[in-house]
Amino acid sequence: MNFQESITIRMLYSAEELTAVKDLESLIWADEDPVPVNHSVAVVKNGGMVIGAFSGARLIGFQYSFPGFDGTNVYLCSHSMGIDPDFRKMGIGEKLKLAQREEALKMGYRRIEWTYDPLETVNGYLNLSKLGGVCTKYIENCYGEMPDILNAGLPSDRFLVEWNIAEETSRLRSESMVIHEIPHLIDVEEDVEGLPVAKNVYLNYEEKANFLYVPVPNQFQMIKSKNLEVALEWRLKTREVFTHYLSKGWAVTSVKKSDHPTLHHYVLTRNFHNGVKEN
């Protein structure tokens, strides 16, 4: 039996299981303040869910969600998902999200929302290109200052993702686009260490194209560890671009992987509504 076949995904309910989730959360984020077990127990009893991924008896990943309400509709708020560092890049995050979709539909939910750092392109590719989520809102410094190892030192800007789980919305359509034929909204140069540096931004393409590309680094944590100033410039330049175009009705619909050694590209789509591009 290979490794992928040995992974099991299931809902978690007991205080013992949820204590293991708290311990894994502390490991992943080096965080001294994970979600308390008594809180997660209450969540799973009141419309939320915690899903675990196991290798044998070992918990190697989790997904944690609770109910949300926007004043009109109830939705599922997907608060956090984490994978043990020893088991990353094995598709476990996608397995957890698909299980979340299945369980949420059983519970009557039609929409799932969550936030993620737009400069974490692995998450972006899963959230937008593979699952079919859409981002129409950029939140500046969403969680304030965060001291954990992945977020410390930079504003906690986030994309808000909406996932319409009542429809099959996976979209890999951007793979057919040719990079040089689409306008790019940030100029990128390399510094003396070979790191990509964000330079000029372009905010004048509202009526000139149906698709736009936003280049972003494909290894943001590496950039952050080597040069925090370069990382901050990426945060501020991408913030400027995304807040501008999303305020004009554009949506972030996918991540275009590239052969470039340091960059991927977000795809902005004009007149995008409910998963369908309107002409």
Results as ranks from 00 to 15, higher is better:
residue 1 M to D: 12
residue 3 F to S: 01
residue 6 S to T: 14
residue 10 R to I: 01
residue 11 M to S: 05
residue 11 M to P: 02
residue 13 Y to D: 04
residue 16 E to P: 01
residue 16 E to Y: 08
residue 17 E to L: 09
residue 17 E to M: 10
residue 21 V to A: 06
residue 24 L to T: 09
residue 25 E to S: 11
residue 28 I to F: 09
residue 29 W to P: 04
residue 29 W to C: 07
residue 29 W to Y: 14
residue 33 D to F: 08
residue 34 P to F: 10
residue 36 P to V: 13
residue 42 A to D: 12
residue 42 A to G: 11
residue 46 N to H: 12
residue 48 G to W: 05
residue 51 I to N: 01
residue 51 I to Y: 00
residue 57 A to W: 04
residue 58 R to C: 08
residue 59 L to K: 06
residue 60 I to Q: 03
residue 60 I to D: 03
residue 60 I to H: 03
residue 62 F to V: 04
residue 66 F to P: 00
residue 66 F to E: 04
residue 70 D to H: 08
residue 71 G to H: 04
residue 71 G to R: 06
residue 73 N to V: 06
residue 78 S to C: 07
residue 80 S to G: 04
residue 80 S to K: 12
residue 84 D to P: 04
residue 85 P to N: 09
residue 87 F to Q: 03
residue 94 E to G: 09
residue 95 K to G: 02
residue 96 L to D: 01
residue 96 L to F: 05
residue 98 L to C: 10
residue 101 R to W: 01
residue 103 E to F: 07
residue 105 L to K: 05
residue 109 Y to F: 09
residue 109 Y to V: 05
residue 112 I to H: 02
residue 113 E to M: 12
residue 114 W to S: 10
residue 114 W to G: 07
residue 115 T to M: 05
residue 116 Y to T: 09
residue 118 P to M: 04
residue 119 L to D: 01
residue 124 G to P: 00
residue 125 Y to G: 00
residue 131 L to G: 00
residue 132 G to E: 01
residue 132 G to W: 00
residue 135 C to K: 01
residue 137 K to F: 09
residue 137 K to Y: 03
residue 139 I to M: 06
residue 144 G to W: 11
residue 145 E to A: 13
residue 146 M to S: 11
residue 147 P to L: 15
residue 149 I to Y: 07
residue 151 N to P: 06
residue 152 A to I: 15
residue 154 L to T: 00
residue 159 F to S: 05
residue 159 F to D: 03
residue 160 L to T: 10
residue 161 V to I: 11
residue 164 N to D: 14
residue 165 I to L: 05
residue 166 A to G: 09
residue 167 E to F: 03
residue 168 E to C: 04
residue 168 E to I: 03
residue 169 T to Y: 00
residue 170 S to Q: 07
residue 176 S to W: 13
residue 180 H to A: 12
residue 182 I to A: 05
residue 183 P to C: 11
residue 183 P to A: 11
residue 184 H to G: 12
residue 185 L to D: 13
residue 185 L to P: 09
residue 191 D to H: 07
residue 199 K to M: 15
residue 201 V to K: 06
residue 208 K to V: 13
residue 210 N to W: 15
residue 214 V to F: 13
residue 216 V to N: 06
residue 217 P to R: 04
residue 218 N to H: 11
residue 218 N to M: 10
residue 219 Q to K: 14
residue 220 F to C: 01
residue 220 F to R: 02
residue 221 Q to N: 15
residue 222 M to A: 07
residue 224 K to P: 01
residue 230 V to Q: 00
residue 230 V to I: 06
residue 236 L to G: 03
residue 236 L to C: 12
residue 236 L to W: 12
residue 237 K to H: 12
residue 240 E to M: 10
residue 240 E to Y: 03
residue 243 T to A: 11
residue 245 Y to I: 07
residue 245 Y to H: 10
residue 246 L to A: 12
residue 247 S to E: 15
residue 249 G to A: 09
residue 250 W to T: 09
residue 252 V to R: 00
residue 253 T to G: 02
residue 253 T to H: 00
residue 253 T to S: 02
residue 254 S to L: 01
residue 254 S to F: 00
residue 258 S to D: 13
residue 260 H to D: 15
residue 261 P to G: 06
residue 261 P to Q: 09
residue 261 P to T: 10
residue 262 T to D: 02
residue 263 L to H: 05
residue 265 H to W: 03
residue 265 H to T: 01
residue 266 Y to D: 02
residue 268 L to I: 14
residue 268 L to D: 04
residue 271 N to D: 15
residue 272 F to E: 09
residue 274 N to V: 03
residue 276 V to Y: 04
residue 277 K to S: 08
residue 279 N to Q: 13
residue 279 N to M: 15
